[in-house]
C-alpha cells in the first residue's frame, strides 16, 4: 500500500500563533530525490511550515504523513491528538534538519556533535560511530576536524558540521531552514556546494532559502510562499522564466 505513498505529504496543514494562521491550509508532497526550494518574503510562513514538516511545531489542522504513515499525531480514543515529545522523538530521527543559526552543541567536539544522535538512538559502537563521523565529515569537506570545537570554526564550517550532524542518522529527507542566511557572503559558497553534492547523490531536500541561484540551478522544484499560502509551485525553469505570474515577478524583482 505504501509503495506509491509520497515520501513526505502534508495535507491541509494549518498552523496558528495567538489565534492567527501563519500557515493556511497547505497541501504539499514530495518524492524521493526531489529538491524543493521554498522562496518567499520574510513572515510568509515558509520557515514555520518547514518546522511543522520537521515535527518541531505541533500543527493546528491537517495532517503530515511520512512514507504513508501518520506522523506528529496519534489516534487516541477515536480522536486525533498531537503526539507527545517522546513519541515524536522516533519520528524525527528519519528527518534531518539544518538551522539558520547552526545550533551546534558548543560543549561537544565536532565528532561528538555528529555522534550524539547515534549514541542516544543506540545505533552503533563507539568505534563504528567514529568511522561514521569521519566518513560524513569527508562528505562535507571537513576531514580532520573531528576534535575541533564549534567555537574554533568559521560560520561556513559550523554549518557544514551541522549538515554532517543531521546526516548522521541516515535521514531519508533533509530540511534546510535558510542555511546560508547567517553566513558572511564569502562563506555561502562552501555550504551551497555541500548541499549541491547532497542533491547530486539523490538526497530528498526541502530548502527554505533566499539563494535564487540555488533554486535555479540545483532545485527541481521552486515554490513561492506568501501570507501563509503556496502561491506558485513550478519547475525552476518556468518559475524563473519571464512568463511567470505577477506575484512571482514582484517577489523576484525584490530579491534580485
Amino acid at each position: 500500500m505504501h509503495e506509491t505513498a509520497p515520501l513526505l505529504q502534508a495535507t491541509n496543514v494549518t498552523k496558528k500563533y495567538h489565534g492567527e494562521a501563519v500557515v493556511k491550509n497547505i497541501s504539499f508532497e514530495t518524492n524521493t530525490g526531489q529538491v524543493t526550494a521554498i522562496l518567499g518574503p520574510s513572515g510568509s510562513g515558509k520557515s514555520t511550515f518547514l518546522r511543522a514538516l520537521a515535527l518541531l511545531e505541533p500543527i493546528d489542522g491537517g495532517e503530515i504523513r511520512f512514507e504513508g504513515q501518520l506522523v506528529g499525531q496519534i489516534q487516541k480514543r477515536g480522536r486525533r491528538v498531537n503526539a507527545s515529545e517522546r513519541q515524536l522523538a522516533s519520528h524525527r530521527a528519519a528527518i534531518g534538519m539544518v538551522f539558520q543559526s547552526f545550533n551546534l552543541f558548543p560543549h561537544m567536539s565536532v565528532e561528538q556533535n555528529i555522534t550524539l544522535a547515534l549514541k542516544v538512538h543506540r545505533r552503533g559502537t563507539t568505534s563504528e560511530n567514529r568511522h561514521t563521523a569521519d566518513s560524513i565529515l569527508q562528505k562535507v569537506g571537513l576531514s580532520g576536524f573531528s576534535t575541533k570545537f564549534p567555537s574554533e570554526l568559521s560560520g561556513g564550517q559550523q554549518q557544514r558540521v551541522a549538515i554532517a550532524r543531521a546526516l548522521a542518522l541516515g535521514p531519508k529527507i533533509m530540511l534546510f531552514d535558510e542555511p546560508t542566511s547567517a553566513l558572511d557572503p564569502e562563506l555561502v559558497r562552501e555550504v551551497l556546494k555541500v548541499m549541491e553534492s547532497l542533491a547530486e547523490q539523490g538526497m530528498t531536500m526541502i530548502v527554505v532559502t533566499h539563494e535564487v541561484g540555488f533554486a535555479k540551478n540545483v532545485a527541481s522544484r521552486a515554490i513561492l510562499f506568501d501570507r501563509g499560502e503556496i502561491v506558485e509551485d513550478l519547475p525552476p525553469e518556468q518559475f524563473f522564466s519571464p512568463g511567470n505570474s505577477e506575484r512571482t515577478r514582484t517577489f523576484l524583482e525584490h530579491v534580485l
Binding site: 517522546r86 522523538a89 530521527a93 552543541f105 550524539l116 542516544v120 538512538h121 543531521a166
Partner: peptide, 11 residues
C-alpha cells in the same frame, strides 16, 4: 540548542 536536540530525535 533544545530545538536542535529535538530535531535529532532526543527525548
Amino acid at each position: 540548542q533544545l530545538l536542535a536536540a529535538r530535531a535529532l530525535g532526543l527525548k
